[in-house]
Design a protein around this nucleic acid. Structure first.
Lengths: 336, 336
DNA sequence: CTGAAAGCGCTTACAG
DNA sequence: CTGAAAGCGCTTACAG
């Protein structure tokens, strides 16, 4: 491989000049510049990215750590991040914490070691504040994705991109209430996850807005797998005067468990039980029951995170930005 | 940040010794070693990955280029690659060609520039041999994933990981034929994609094995989007004595288009039309029609690719390996 | 407008 | 068993 010295020699200039031509970092006489470019052509020279990164404070790469690469919504976010990164000429280093804070930490350390210019993180459920402290200590630009930090909290001063969970929940509950549902079972999952917490909050508020009660029997919290969810939901929907008339699941995984419980109890959707879900299932309109779904703009979430991160890298001191994208509500037969 | 010089100074040794202790690359007296380790602790020293990579011929990173990050099967492969990479202590650089050969080329160039230790590629539909030549020219270890190269072909001498499409197709056709289906419509998509080509080949063979004919009216080729597929499938299944009694779609996307056509024609699955698909839909057992599916072990495909690549990196001269994993057939109601 | 030279933080022959 | 020193391929003050 040709080096910058080869190019300089061939062009009859110094390596400084070659470097400056390539980086457009100081004026060079057109004629000299032309000679350099010719030499670059002739030698097939390509700048050594590693040597370059070592001298500059930049690697033109960013790191992404997701909490669950297996979930379709996260896969879409990864896709969006990749797209935006490629469009901006930065490489993407991908890691998955699999909801394990220890793996998350070591993934972040590995990315810091590689000197990525910035990090995008959708944090693991049990992740604590130390991670953010560590990244701040390194003064590394950071954007939180989907799993956000409370505003005003100790670690709240970070760029963030998420969806407007409260608004989506308000619309969904409004839709159900408008169809006469007053006892709605919320399947909210692991409340250490901020997005799930927000959905539960939004649910309570939306119910309260309509003077509707949310007794504990209408909350199914804390389940992590579909199987667990199935087990926990089943008794809650068993036939009785008090049973819910609608089930609202806060993720695809939770919806799968809950829907199986509904089916196992012999309840038809929507005749015996209305059903709606966040994220939902792909091609839902092709299958019965057709599930009313809150569709997250996952791809755009990823794109936006990159946009925010690149801005932050350019302007480390700029004020914090929080982006909340709206979800799209897809009303289908499952809610009557 | 502490450098190797700081550590050497504090420990009262040369930087050579520090380097050799850290890399375990030559014997060092236990006592000296201890002093070095202490100095490492005291200074909080972390090896500069960039400087290190610059001297060594390795970066401890690998690159993955997928052809369609939006497809669930590829998302799962990415997941598997990530998992295996993390387990082996190498970082993963991810890129998506979006089925565009030009993007694929520039992604590969970017990864080569970053000196990844090896590449895993699921090639774009229109990708040609130049890409492989280029990678071979750089003598960069390479594993082909899912989209494979013909054996014995000009570029055939490459490590590859894919599924056993012929076997899956044989089983699927056997299943349908066993249920009396003789006119099966194959929706095979873009035949520039090797896996789709293999499925069509497998289909022809499996049909021939049973003395069944495959007239052009039972082949729907070349569609890329679901909408296109819908348009092209619809007339082929229109009611007539000659219409197929079963539809077999070779990917999730194709299945979506084909199933919509079936529904639009008012045909019920499986009463009026049997239906089966490769890849299929998630949580297919929860929804009607429940689709008989050939489930690719996509995650394991990704893991295997990393295994092969790391072996290749260790042993550049070893003979080529081709891994074919078996798909799992999930028989459901859609095929009666 | 351009060049000579230091230096980024490592690894690795070479020498003893 | 260990050290002095060259060198990887760049960028960037410094100097003219």
């Amino acid at each position: 491989m040709a080096t910058i010295v080869d190019v300089a020699t061939l062009a009859g200039v110094s390596t400084s000049t070659v470097s400056h031509v390539l980086n457009e970092t100081r004026h060079v006489e057109p004629e000299t510049k032309a000679r350099v470019m010719q030499a670059v052509q002739a030698t097939g020279y390509r700048r050594d990215v590693l040597a370059r990164s070592m001298r500059r404070a930049r690697t033109d790469s960013i790191g992404l750590v997701v909490s669950d690469a297996g979930e379709p919504a996260f896969a879409d976010m990864v896709h969006g991040v990749e797209e935006a990164a490629a469009q901006n000429g930065v490489s993407l280093l991908l890691a998955n914490s699999a909801e394990d804070p220890a793996r998350e930490t070591s993934a972040v350390e590995a990315l810091l070691d590689r000197r990525v210019d910035g990090l995008i993180i959708a944090r693991a459920a049990g992740s604590d504040g130390k991670l953010l402290d560590r990244i701040r200590e390194e003064q590394k630009p950071l954007v939180l994705l989907d799993r956000l930090e409370e505003l005003g909290g100790e670690h709240g001063n970070v760029d963030q991109v998420g969806v407007n969970n409260h608004a989506a929940m308000e619309a969904l509950v409004g839709h159900l209430a408008g169809r006469g549902h007053e006892r709605i079972l919320l399947v909210s999952g692991d409340l250490r996850v901020s997005s799930l917490r927000e959905r539960q909050d939004g649910f309570r508020k939306a119910m309260a807005n309509r003077g509707l009660d949310v007794p504990p029997s209408l909350l199914c919290e804390g389940t992590v797998t579909a199987a667990e969810t199935f087990q926990k939901v089943r008794p809650l929907i068993k036939g009785s005067a008090e049973r819910p008339t609608a089930v609202l699941a806060c993720s695809t995984l939770l919806a799968a468990g809950a829907l199986r419980a509904v089916q196992k109890e012999g309840l038809r959707v929507p005749d015996d039980m209305a059903f709606a879900a966040f994220d939902g299932f792909t091609y839902s309109d092709l299958f019965h029951p057709q599930i009313t779904t809150v569709r997250q703009p996952a791809f755009r979430l990823g794109e936006s995170a990159v946009g925010l991160l690149l801005k932050r890298i350019e302007h480390p001191g700029a004020p914090t930005t929080i982006i909340r994208l709206d979800s799209e509500l897809e009303f289908r037969r499952s809610t009557g």
